[in-house]
């Protein structure tokens, strides 16, 4: 048993060492626009390149202390400033950073520009963990942005094995050779890259299954699957339990010479029960039936049990219950 616990703990330590805080790995570089001539203007009315980060998580993420760089050799080139609540990206929302090389202009002004930059890297707050990267095509025209076709989806480096589920693998397979990145005709800073109309699941279902038959069959199938698996599991667990009970009975029934003679006064040895047990049953039944103390009957299935009287609801801090008895007293 100790061995199993040790192995489990070791595995947990191994997993935790490899995984990052969920919030960090959920951020993606969603869209970049290196040369901005007629697009988004900053708070001073100036135009410059920009980077859009997207929070793929379903919870808020603070990107303060994250690093953006154009070179893996210099991972801490620009740090997103700390100490401002504006760096918190709400769930499934965006944050735009201005790449004008003028950090003194404000909170979200980077200390380098994107002109001529071929790749952009996002590092976590430790300055070592690569969260995401984007490779910008050299042929990208002015005022055109490059980003993910579907927000947050597509190639993501490095692939974190602890997040590489079957579902994620299936999505990755569908991503084309472009890795899910495209040149976007209409830049969308601070907004979704997906310009097509998104249908809700309910709307899709209305089209796919207008009479509800497919959903009914699928859902009933899943309900049955769940309960059939439970049925099979507990049939097996039950069989094992019964077998174990029988084995215990057999071992108890094995002829063992008692160390001290057992006091049995009943004449019928086959149904011999200790007098004290009989008395306890009689008293308990009397108390239960007459409502003297209903707690004597432990409400369990098909089993009438009698417990020894124990201290209930004892105060935690009661010294008399926590201190050992003084052997001298």
């Amino acid at each position: 048993m100790k061995k199993i616990i040790s192995i489990t703990l070791a595995l947990l330590l191994f997993v935790s060492a490899k995984s990052y805080a969920q919030s960090q790995v959920d951020i993606r570089i969603n869209e970049v626009l290196p040369v901005n001539i007629s697009g988004l203007a900053d708070e001073n009315g100036n135009r410059c390149g920009w980077v859009e980060l997207y929070n793929t998580a379903f919870g808020m993420v603070d990107v303060a202390g994250f690093y953006l760089t154009d070179s893996k050799d210099n991972p801490t080139r620009y740090m997103i400033p700390k100490g401002n609540t504006a760096t918190v990206i709400p769930l499934r929302k965006y944050l735009v950073l201005y790449a004008d090389g003028r950090p003194e202009k404000g909170l979200f002004h980077m200390n380098f520009t994107l002109e001529g930059v071929s790749a952009l890297y996002l590092f976590g707050s430790d300055g070592k963990t690569l969260i995401d990267e984007i490779h910008i095509p050299a042929s990208l025209p002015h005022d055109k942005s490059f980003g993910r076709f579907i927000d947050g989806e597509g190639a993501h480096e490095p692939v974190n094995w602890s997040k590489q589920s079957l579902r994620k693998a299936a999505i990755d397979k569908k991503i084309g050779s472009d890795g899910g990145f495209v040149i976007l005709d209409h830049p969308t800073p601070g907004n979704t890259n997906t310009t097509r109309i998104v249908e809700s699941k309910s709307e899709k279902m209305q089209q796919l299954d207008p009479w509800g038959g497919i959903l009914a069959l699928t859902a009933m199938g899943v309900v049955f699957l769940c309960l059939v698996i439970l049925f099979l599991s507990f049939s097996q667990i039950g069989k094992n339990a019964v077998r174990k009970q029988q084995q215990t009975k057999v071992s108890k029934q094995a002829p063992v010479k008692p160390a001290t003679p057992v006091r049995i006064k009943s004449k019928d040895s086959a149904s011999a029960i200790d007098d004290e047990i009989l008395a306890a049953i009689a008293v308990a039944c009397h108390m239960y039936q007459n409502g003297i103390d209903n707690t004597v009957h432990d409400v369990e299935s098909n089993v009438l049990t009698f417990n020894q009287e124990a201290l209930r609801n004892s105060p935690w801090g009661a010294r008399s219950l926590t201190l050992k008895q003084d052997p001298r007293s």
Binding site: W211, G212, G213, L215, A216, A219, M220, V223, F224, C226, L227, V228, L230, F231, F234, S235, G238
Partner: peptide, 19 residues
């Protein structure tokens, strides 16, 4: 445990009402 299956069957009402 086979009584679990009876509990599953009774859920049919949900999906009939859905349709």
């Amino acid at each position: 445990p086979k009584l679990l299956l009876v509990g599953a069957a009774a859920q049919f009402g949900i999906f009939a009402a859905y349709a």
